[in-house]
Design a protein around this nucleic acid. Structure first.
Length: 157
DNA sequence: GCCAACGTTGGC
DNA sequence: GCCAACGTTGGC
């Protein structure tokens, strides 16, 4: 069982949206490192910290979990969609995704500045290398962050 | 809106 | 295979 952090811009898809939808295919990932993590490292049931990027402030806002094995991202085959990849084909798909299921909102979102100043979280990929949108989190970091957040409440706001 | 970091593309 | 140009991410 591993732990992850996945980013989303709340204007595009927020934790509230996931709470409403329940389960959502995490489409549109076009970074090989992120893809490889989803394809090779994720297991159904892995816990995921849901992070709002490009928010004011950016913050870890809740929890989700991996809800499927990796499978081809259908948006890469849609010529009219913004995630279309002309170099990919259904025979040899380039981009994979996993489904993500809502778990809960944090009692208190943890803003990025607070994450950055916490010595226990200084090694997080989020702090060290902020651009990766799907990233591994150690169990220690995960537990610490959930504790900072005061745990989760199950209902969406 | 700016721009640093950094990943990808493509000419050679 | 190198590397310059370019595009994207995402904090500020």
């Amino acid at each position: 069982m591993r732990h992850w952090l996945m980013k989303s811009e709340p204007d595009a898809y927020s934790l509230d949206d996931l709470a409403r939808d329940g389960v959502e295919p995490w489409d549109g990932i076009r970074n090989y490192q992120a893809r490889n993590l989803m394809r090779d490292e994720m297991t159904v049931g892995d816990r995921v910290i849901f992070y709002h990027s490009n928010a004011k402030p950016p913050a870890a806002v809740g929890l989700a979990e991996v809800a499927s094995e990796a499978y081809p991202d259908p948006t890469q085959f849609d010529p009219d969609g913004k995630y279309f990849d002309p170099k990919s084909s259904p025979d040899d798909p380039r981009w994979l995704l996993v489904d993500v299921r809502y778990v809960g909102h944090f009692e208190r979102p943890v803003p990025l500045p607070e994450i950055k100043e916490d010595p226990a979280l200084s090694e997080m990929v989020l702090v060290q290398r902020s651009r990766l949108s799907v990233q591994p989190v150690t169990e220690t970091e995960f537990d610490h962050l959930v504790e900072l957040a005061g745990g989760i409440r199950s209902a969406a706001s």
